[in-house]
Amino acid sequence: MPLILIEIADGVAVVTLNRPEAMNALSAALRVELAEAMLAVASDDTVRAVVLTGAGTRAFTAGLDLKELGASTAGLGAANATDPRDNPVRAVEQCAKPVIGAINGVAITGGFELALACDVLIASTNARFADTHARVGIMPGWGLSQKLSRMIGLSRAKELSLTGNFLDAATAERWGLVNRVVEADALLPTAMALARDMASIDPAMAAAYKALIDDGFALPFGEGMTLEAERSIAANTQVAPEAVEQARQAVMARGRSQG
């Protein structure tokens, strides 16, 4: 049975972690298949946006396979490496296309980190988040200690990480961790509709804009503004007036259809 499923339609690839019997735990084998899947959709010109989710309703992913770690912690060093075949966050980050996380159940510890690797999070009412690194006795290595505080604030991040308590979907939305919460049967349709909206953007523009947001967010504000100015000048001087007018007409038509 494949550990990763890929379905492609209307410019959107749905990538599914497929170990529901193990709460989609990130075994070494699954991490390799995820890296291969994300590389495949990243290089497929028919794919313009990606939805990442988990099989079943119990779990997006429960994180690293603790049964594997219980037998040997030797894999922890590899898991913290930068190789996408070991590090699932790197696997997602190697995709320059928009990645929407459809969080169908629990996202725990390493699974929480994988969720935060996505560009946008849509959660079902079944979704819950927890950081149990401290309780397990393992330091995070996929970005959770830095990303979470930047998303929800320092004190809230400390509350989650220093208790290991679960955060329910409604509170996650209120804290700004997820964009919206929907019923379980509406999760994939909602995520795919948003992905199709993103897929309708010119792919080169989408990739460049995503990179600008991410690269700038990693910098102090002033440096981020400088980065935007540099890339804006370099890109916008190449735009033809005719292209701007054509795009303006299309934007106006789309706005009228949404009104």
Rank of each mutant, 00 (worst) to 15 (best):
186 A>R: 14
118 C>D: 00
224 G>T: 06
29 A>H: 02
224 G>L: 03
164 G>V: 12
162 L>P: 12
206 A>C: 02
222 G>K: 04
224 G>N: 00
17 L>F: 08
186 A>S: 15
135 R>I: 12
60 F>M: 12
63 G>W: 00
60 F>H: 02
180 R>K: 13
148 L>K: 09
77 G>N: 07
82 T>F: 08
2 P>I: 08
201 I>F: 10
133 H>A: 12
170 A>L: 10
218 A>H: 00
228 E>K: 02
93 E>N: 13
116 L>T: 08
94 Q>P: 00
86 D>G: 00
85 R>L: 04
18 N>R: 01
138 I>W: 05
56 G>K: 00
80 N>K: 02
174 R>D: 07
134 A>I: 05
161 S>V: 09
74 A>K: 03
33 E>D: 09
44 D>W: 08
178 V>G: 04
77 G>R: 06
235 A>W: 14
55 A>M: 10
40 A>F: 05
257 S>Q: 08
99 V>K: 04
83 D>Y: 01
29 A>R: 05
213 I>T: 12
152 I>R: 14
211 A>Y: 08
51 V>D: 13
223 E>Y: 09
75 G>M: 01
124 S>I: 05
204 A>S: 06
185 D>N: 13
37 A>F: 00
115 A>V: 02
113 E>N: 01
259 G>D: 15
20 P>R: 07
229 A>V: 03
226 T>W: 00
10 D>K: 12
91 A>S: 10
39 L>F: 06
257 S>A: 11
109 T>R: 04
41 V>A: 10
178 V>F: 04
112 F>H: 05
134 A>E: 12
119 D>G: 01
239 V>T: 01
7 E>H: 14
162 L>G: 02
100 I>D: 10
150 R>C: 02
36 E>A: 12
70 G>W: 05
88 P>Y: 02
246 Q>K: 15
79 A>L: 00
183 E>C: 09
141 G>D: 01
62 A>E: 02
89 V>A: 11
215 D>Q: 15
1 M>P: 14
116 L>Q: 08
172 A>N: 11
49 A>K: 05
53 T>N: 01
207 A>Y: 07
